[in-house]
Design a binder for these strands. Sequence first.
DNA 1: CGCCTCTGTCGAAGCGCTTCGATAATCGGT
DNA 2: ACCGATTATCGAAGCGCTTCGACAGAGGCG
Lengths: 334, 334
Amino acid sequence: MSERAVTISEVARHAGVAVSTVSYVLSGKRAISADTRRRVLDSVRVLGYHPNAGARALASKRANVIALVLPLRVGMHVPVLMQFATSVVTAARQYDHDVLLLTADEGSDGLRRAAASALVDGLVLMDVELHDSRVPLLKDLAEPSVLIGFPADSAGLTCVDLDFARAGALCVEHLAERGHTEVALLGAPSVVYERGTGFARRTREGFAAAVADTGLKGVALSCEENFDQVSAVIAELLDTRPGLSGLVVHNEAAVNHVLGALRQHGRRVPDDIAVVAICPDDIAERSSPPLTSVLIPAEEVGRQAVRLLMEKLEGHVVPEDTLLQPWLTVRDST
Amino acid sequence: MSERAVTISEVARHAGVAVSTVSYVLSGKRAISADTRRRVLDSVRVLGYHPNAGARALASKRANVIALVLPLRVGMHVPVLMQFATSVVTAARQYDHDVLLLTADEGSDGLRRAAASALVDGLVLMDVELHDSRVPLLKDLAEPSVLIGFPADSAGLTCVDLDFARAGALCVEHLAERGHTEVALLGAPSVVYERGTGFARRTREGFAAAVADTGLKGVALSCEENFDQVSAVIAELLDTRPGLSGLVVHNEAAVNHVLGALRQHGRRVPDDIAVVAICPDDIAERSSPPLTSVLIPAEEVGRQAVRLLMEKLEGHVVPEDTLLQPWLTVRDST
DNA sequence: CGCCTCTGTCGAAGCGCTTCGATAATCGGT
DNA sequence: ACCGATTATCGAAGCGCTTCGACAGAGGCG
């Protein structure tokens, strides 16, 4: 157990300067001579000084903490969410901010409480639905916020996401280039569409648009996440659409079941059926065969979200919509 | 955008009492007449007062925030970690605390910083390794901490975890009762064992001990997470151990690959081979057939960890080791 | 009826920091 | 060598809350 924490006035005394001088050295908000700066920083090091977060927040009206609002709903692929979360934390640290984790169980009250108590300076919301109950609240919160994902009415909000419509289209275009003429999309579980989760719908729209543009035949289906149901869907698909030779899978939990089901039904990938997935690279690489895939740049999304939030905290105006371009990696499944 | 935040003195004025009286009403630390209490609470509601977290932390020396330290290492199953994380957040809120998310990239410095700056009152560490670099630091931190998982030397630390040794044993005992005589454990990827992650080793030890106790034949293998490698291991196993009829799988990412590989090699579950998994219920239920499994009581672990931390924050002495009992659910795979 | 003990409330002193205005000291220009 | 502009530093006033000691009034008791 260590002793009482070192305060700024002890540092000041040790360095032979005023408290305010130490503060200015640390914040860089006023010019300080090289000599004084060095003495102060030495004292900081020697004494092991860490500014008290509460006192700093109180005096400066900035907690240097942002909230990460992360509801954990069924049907969401958790590892991807965690990639977002991790990159948000990492990016926030780069701006000298910490991250407070808020989950769904408190509902909007949690957001209101964290914001109103000045616990956090701003909010990053993940897993945004088309009609998200948290969104109206955001608009009358004093604290700035950034959404990862798009609600139906994103006017006045700052949103970041992968361009899922483009991702869906990219998959179709890739299959078209490979000469396939009939394709299918296996998407999220139906509950996700019903809930109106934006990314699932937008992928489906992009898929449909590209199918129309390229003149392919194509269907979009929802896809549950247990093996037997996946297997049944695949069987049905193979049965009713003999010309089908390309599959787009946008469901991280089901993608291995899809491969298993194809194997079970005697179809070889890619010889009989080509498969392209929208999923993280590690899942694509771990499959057999390794899958051609469009990856979700979680890292980049998190970083951009934080960057935008920091801009807003500085009082700058930022673009409302940020769409990141998807990237397709060809592997052995197409 | 809302206007400047309401302060305690505005509440006091509105209610016609002193600031300190409002504080005592809210904290309950001194007796207040029913009448005054009601007036104050009314004012709080009418004005929409939320105490300023920074000011409160500064004055009371308690931030009412705990840190959740969550390194995200390869080979760890993220959904399970998130179950822990979620239950920690939920439990913390029950004690009126919030959760600050710390990840690995800052290393131990992040812990030191958060603790020294009084940003957090205590720490919950997840995914603890046998020789964890964060552990020595904990011992000389003034802030109390609780570990989820056990390091090699847990003396002086408060640790909570599922009794993985018992979980491994439970699986073996279940298979023995079902009449199997030769079994195998497919565990974590080898990197996880090499890193010395406690739970993986303890499961293996429990498995080995139970194999010895019950007089079965058994091997424990590590298990990578891509389909082709799993398939190869299964092939080898079936080939070299014709008597093998029971499999224990302790690897969430590989469990579906195992089932796929068995199918591929023409083995039926449970008729030819019985499979029992150590994994969350949702994975077990989604497999085909649904798997008999020992679940990891993530919810309970998180809750206990927070409870212990709160006890320590109150200055109470708590038991060093808390092992939660595993529970086996029989489904269709055995 | 006077004394003592509770109860309920108040005022004021910080908690450790940031920031504003003031003040010295230094400098270049003439 | 003098003046105004700069540069570097200081002191003090809060930020909004908790908590300590004080104290008035109510109530119990002999």
